[in-house]
């Protein structure tokens, strides 16, 4: 029985099949957003989505979100207005980040396989807020930055797919990036993810006009070193031939919009 628009109810066999096939396929091609999204849904049921829903239900802001079920798209977020905000505000930082990374908020797939409507919204919300986590941490959408954000999300939200991505992907990267991740970004992600308050309970749309650093302080997040700058410095050095590397400057998980 369909419990919300777009819901695809599955039986146990379908569920197992989709779990296994999307898992294998997403590991082989992590750039296929649909596979990653499906695997994320398959692994967050029955336990993890429910736990997140409980976390949201125990928080006034989380309850407000569940009640209003706001969506984040380029229509609900007035990007031009955000560009007009002072540069220290969250909204402006977010739109700066969007422009710098050349991505758009409209690329999120709808949740289909989560049965409970509230839990489906929780996962949907997590997906749509993913860019805000990037922006608040100032991390780029290259695979390296993506891994750091995924680990940060795993420590903060405990969604299994984020953890699986964060531990499986670094080994596909070149040694220099691995070193940077293990020395700087993964420790930052684990420490800040655990320390910060649950990021699902942030009504990002209502925080856009606030000072970003103030918000970070309130949430308990500190900024990591600038990954783009570090990569640029490193790129200036003479290069060795590197084989079998995923092109670093593309979003591995989500397609670019334009």
């Amino acid at each position: 029985m369909q419990r919300y628009p777009g819901h695809v109810p599955l039986n146990t066999f379908q569920r197992l099949f989709l779990f296994a096939s999307s898992g294998i396929a997403a590991y082989i091609s992590p750039r296929r957003a649909d596979l990653v999204a499906t695997f994320g849904e398959m692994t967050s049921q029955p336990f993890f989505a429910r736990r997140l829903k409980k976390q949201m239900l125990s928080d006034p802001v989380g309850r407000e979100l569940l009640r209003e079920k706001p969506r984040i798209t380029s229509k609900t977020l007035n990007l031009d207005y955000l560009r007009s905000l002072p540069s220290n505000t969250l909204g402006n930082e977010y739109v700066q980040w969007l422009d710098k990374e050349n991505v758009s908020p409209d690329t999120r797939l709808p949740v289909r396989f989560i049965d409970d409507p509230d839990e489906a919204y929780v996962i949907q919300r997590y997906r749509e807020c993913h860019d805000f986590y990037h922006a608040i941490a100032g991390l780029p959408v290259v695979m390296e930055g993506e891994v750091a954000v995924k680990m940060f999300e795993f420590a903060n939200l405990g969604i299994p797919m984020t953890g699986l991505a964060a531990i499986s992907e670094p080994f596909k990267l070149p040694k220099s990036m691995q070193k940077r991740l293990f020395d700087i970004y993964l420790p930052w992600a684990v420490y800040n993810g655990f320390k910060a308050k649950c990021l699902l309970n942030v009504y990002w749309e209502k925080e856009l006009e606030r000072d970003a650093n103030e918000l970070r302080k309130e949430l308990g997040i500190s900024l990591p070193p600038d990954m783009r700058a570090m990569r640029a410095t490193r790129a200036m050095r003479p290069k060795r031939v590197v084989r079998n590397v995923i092109r670093p400057d593309s979003d591995p998980i989500y397609e670019k919009s334009n």
Binding site: K53, K54, Q55, L57, S58, D59, P60, R63
Partner: peptide
């Protein structure tokens, strides 16, 4: 309702 609701 869920225990989380009751706690809240």
């Amino acid at each position: 309702l869920d225990m989380a609701d009751l706690d809240y």
